[in-house]
Design a protein around this nucleic acid. Structure first.
Lengths: 163, 163
DNA sequence: AACAAAATTTAGTTTCATCTAAGAAAAGGA
DNA sequence: TCCTTTTCTTAGATGAAACTAAATTTTGTT
């Protein structure tokens, strides 16, 4: 996870994905939105755009609308599988609402090893598929939800400042 | 996850934890080992040591043995809970052998949000505790293990980069 | 003790990702 | 149209984390 295989850092992957999302959702990619959503200032977003362009993943020219290149689209397709798997884990197993699961998946997908991701994928296949997982999944969900509700509001006693 | 709350980056956390581990395991911390285990060269390790010392987490002077300060020990105590929770998830739910789960937990613990970690902790509490999780856990483990064995060697069947 | 080998540190560079300050372009209202 | 506001970009700086090459210190051997 140290060496971005395709020369694409986790941060840049996030930018790229966000570009795709904004593009399909709003039709356009505004640098301000990009910065907002990434939690940074506009110059950082601009610089990310330049780096992405330099890597051949987007078409970028100053003050022009941004578009994805074929390579860029391919990269996104490659990445989004991981995103789905994680979001699935978070909602299905951990019982997180989609509004929480999504950003968490977003934040983690670029930092998790392919090995681990593959294994999680297998688990989710198992939990969804007929081979035998579905009842188990339902039982887990129902009983964990109940457990959560009972432990309500004190989520593991507060693992943050335990020291 | 962008802003290290206590001014301590994920990388530095890893170094700190490794220092602790080497110290308790071998009694001493050799820069070479530090570098080896972190997958970097010795100058990088040295620079990390300087940064950690500057943050008041270790006592460090050139060519001297490294020791943890009180703050350093506190930081480690604060962090290791997350490590255990993740390793537990990986072995118990995903069925990874400890030799794989450990390094994966190590790599992820500094990159996962407190929220998510807390929820995973709750899940593990549930799965281990008497409230009702244990049979579920055993069922999950056994059946998933079987599923894994059957899907042997092709982890996730192939729709990975489903394009 | 003196020298060779191993370990560690310094020096100097690189890349990434961010920032602030300030200038250029585009959009919109009067 | 012209002027103001918003948006975007450039310029320049910073800090984290890594590298190579070259000192320097420590250790171990004879």
């Amino acid at each position: 996870m140290k060496k971005p295989k395709g020369g694409l850092s986790g941060t840049l992957e996030s930018y790229l994905e966000l570009i795709h999302e904004l593009q399909t959702q709003y039709g356009a990619v505004r640098v301000t939105d990009l910065a907002d959503r990434m939690g940074c200032k506009t110059p950082s977003a601009t610089s990310a755009l330049r780096r992405l362009a330099h890597l051949g993943l987007i078409n970028y020219e100053a003050y022009r609308p941004v578009t994805l290149t074929r390579d860029g689209k391919a990269a996104i397709r490659r990445m989004s599988a991981g995103h789905r798997i994680l979001a699935d884990l978070f909602t299905t197993v951990l019982g997180l609402p989609a509004e929480l699961a999504e950003p968490e998946a977003c934040a983690l997908e670029h930092r998790i090893s392919p090995t681990l991701l593959a294994r999680i994928g297998t688990l989710m296949d198992f939990l969804h598929g007929p081979p035998g997982g579905t009842e188990l999944r339902d039982a887990l969900q129902q009983r964990f939800a109940k457990y959560l509700a009972s432990a309500e509001g004190q989520e593991r006693g507060g693992p943050k400042a335990s020291a």
